[in-house]
């Protein structure tokens, strides 16, 4: 438990000193997968809270049948695709990070989003349409900060140069889309096989019955 808190404090340090902290994360074991999962769960909770508690002006009328697990599955899927894609590309681009490193580093990059969006949820209940630009600026700040941390994590964990890190990130997105495509195809085929088999079974059953 104490370890968890120490590692969370380290996560805060990471948002302000990314280069130092990512090195420590990989080589000096100052963070762990356990904390990464906690951060990821917190990230999902913040997304859920956003959907439920944002003021009317910025979030529209609340969706009555909001399903929080759909958010969970969404982020988990994207995260998994990204990590697998990135890990796959380390072979091609001589990256030195392992799957463990990639997963923890990506999760730690989500911390600024959590930090900024929680006060944003409060503010959205008090702000007025005119102040929408301020609200948007906060959102952009969170996004760009997280993107920056992601970039730094790629540079430090895989020991890439900046240029190579950008190319690898782009290639990871391409890889993610390719994997998603293949998954959809696979699921479709599987569906067809299952439907085919179940129809045959039903036919046989009906013929035996009568």
């Amino acid at each position: 438990m104490a370890d968890l808190f120490k590692e969370l404090k380290f996560a805060l340090y990471l948002t302000l000193h990314p280069f130092d902290a990512y090195w420590d994360l990989k080589h000096e074991k100052r963070g762990s997968l356990r904390t990464a999962i906690v951060i990821f769960v917190l990230f999902n909770l913040v997304l859920v809270a956003e959907n439920l508690f944002t003021g009317y002006i910025f979030g529209g009328r609340k969706n009555v049948d909001y399903n929080m697990f759909s958010t969970f599955w969404g982020t988990l899927g994207v995260m998994a695709l990204f990590c697998v894609g990135n890990w796959g590309l380390t072979c091609l681009s001589d990256g030195k990070g392992t799957m463990y490193d990639i997963c923890t580093a990506t999760a730690y990059a989500l911390v600024p989003y959590i930090l900024i969006h929680i006060p944003m949820i409060f503010l959205s209940n008090f702000f007025v349409q005119r102040e929408a630009t301020f609200y948007a600026v906060f959102g952009l700040l969170a996004t760009f900060w997280c993107a920056f941390l992601l970039l730094v994590s790629q540079i430090v964990t895989h020991q890439y140069t900046l240029f190579r890190a950008l190319i690898v990130i782009f290639a990871t997105f391409v890889a993610m889309m390719a994997m998603a495509c293949l998954l959809i195809l696979f699921v479709n085929l599987l569906q067809q096989v299952i439907v085919f088999a179940s129809i045959i079974i039903e036919e046989i059953y009906l013929r035996i019955k009568y």
Binding site: Y56, I57, R61, F126, F127, V128, Q129, R130, E131
Partner: peptide, 25 residues
């Protein structure tokens, strides 16, 4: 206004209410 999805008028009313309750944010 929220029921009618009238964001503009909702926002204006909220502003007036805010001014009434406290200074600006």
């Amino acid at each position: 206004y929220m029921n009618a999805d009238e964001t503009e008028k909702y926002s204006d009313t909220k502003e007036t209410l805010r001014k009434q309750q406290a200074g600006s944010i």
